[in-house]
Computed example of a mutant assay.
Amino acid sequence: MKKIIVLILISGFCYAQGVKRKLVWEEDFNKKEVNEKNWNFELGDGCPDLCGYGNNERQIYTRTNHEFKDGNLVIEARKEGNKYTSTKITTKGKKEFKYGRIEARAKLPVGHGLWPAFWMLGANIDEVKWPKTGEIDILEYIGRDPHMVYTTLHTQDSHGNTINTKRTAFPDIEEGYHVFAIEWTKEKIDFYVDKSVVYTFNPEVKTEDTWPFDKPFYIVLNLAIGGNFGGPEVDDKALPQKFYIDYVRVYQ
């Protein structure tokens, strides 16, 4: 019994860079529906305010392009008639975090035109707008560039075709599940794929334009289709495709 108790206690902590962190929030997707106490659905195509979500994306987000299977949230990209559909959820206004380790375990979809992502936006986006609010792209994968993971930050100083990015090769990234994470402190942000640090962002001069990462951010999970980065072409024959998310965890 003592051994079991010890294991349970240890499971609530993680060690990264020699720092002991406690699990402060977890979404394990073991229910049969999205927990709307924690998550919001983002619906539609971004119009009229931001058609194509600012990237000429082709999907319409719905409440129905997902399911729960074997403890996973499964987001499905589909071609329905002449339209593409998918799902996007965020923790905006419900679960927001400043610093810590933020991670997700996920299995990627494949196919030209697909663009799964696990990312974060500043909680003050409605007041200061993008890119001043800041954006942390913990995972981006695009089907037209297989075996590559993109980790990126957008700031007022560098956004869109930002210089704050890293494209890292993983020959087996499409195989099975992988853990995508950041270690975020007041000094820097380290990006991880599984146990490997793939990119570190640590600007020498930190101002609100170069380092908007000293305030709470919320989490976004989505599977985009097409767009400036993901496409523009989409391989309809590859659809439907599924983005599996096993869990999201935050340690501080």
Rank of each mutant, 00 (worst) to 15 (best):
K2P: 09
K3P: 02
I4L: 15
I10W: 04
I10R: 08
F13A: 08
F13Q: 11
C14Y: 06
C14D: 12
Y15E: 12
V19P: 07
V19S: 10
V19L: 12
K20C: 12
L23C: 05
W25L: 05
E27V: 11
K31N: 07
V34Q: 03
N35Y: 10
E36G: 06
E36I: 03
N38M: 08
N38P: 01
W39V: 03
W39P: 09
N40I: 00
F41N: 06
L43K: 07
C47A: 10
P48A: 04
D49S: 13
C51F: 05
G52P: 13
G52M: 12
G54W: 08
G54K: 01
Q59G: 00
I60V: 13
R63E: 14
R63K: 14
T64G: 08
T64K: 13
H66E: 07
F68V: 12
F68N: 03
G71M: 09
V74R: 01
R78P: 11
K79Q: 09
K79H: 06
K79L: 08
E80N: 01
K83F: 09
Y84Q: 06
Y84R: 00
S86V: 00
T91Q: 11
T91P: 06
G93N: 02
G93M: 09
K95W: 10
E96P: 00
E96R: 05
F97Y: 01
F97K: 01
Y99H: 05
R101M: 09
R101H: 08
A106F: 09
A106H: 03
K107M: 10
L108Y: 01
P109A: 07
P109Q: 00
V110L: 10
V110A: 10
L114E: 00
L114D: 02
W119A: 02
A123L: 06
N124V: 10
D126T: 10
E127C: 02
W130Y: 09
K132A: 06
T133A: 15
G134E: 02
E135A: 04
I136N: 07
L139H: 11
Y141C: 01
Y141K: 08
R144L: 09
H147K: 15
L153V: 14
Q156K: 14
H159D: 15
H159Q: 15
G160Y: 14
G160R: 11
N161I: 14
N161Q: 15
N161G: 14
T165F: 11
T165Q: 13
T165S: 15
K166E: 15
K166H: 14
A169W: 15
E174I: 07
G176K: 13
Y177R: 01
H178I: 13
V179G: 05
V179I: 15
F180V: 05
A181T: 08
E187D: 15
K188P: 07
I189R: 05
F191D: 01
F191W: 11
D194Y: 03
D194V: 06
S196T: 07
S196C: 02
V198C: 10
Y199L: 08
T200E: 03
F201D: 00
F201A: 01
N202A: 14
P203S: 03
V205E: 14
E208A: 03
E208R: 02
D209F: 07
K215C: 03
P216C: 05
F217Q: 06
V220C: 12
N222S: 07
A224I: 11
G230N: 10
E233S: 08
E233Q: 05
E233G: 05
V234G: 02
D236G: 03
D236V: 11
A238T: 00
P240C: 07
P240Q: 00
V248L: 00
V248M: 06
V248G: 05
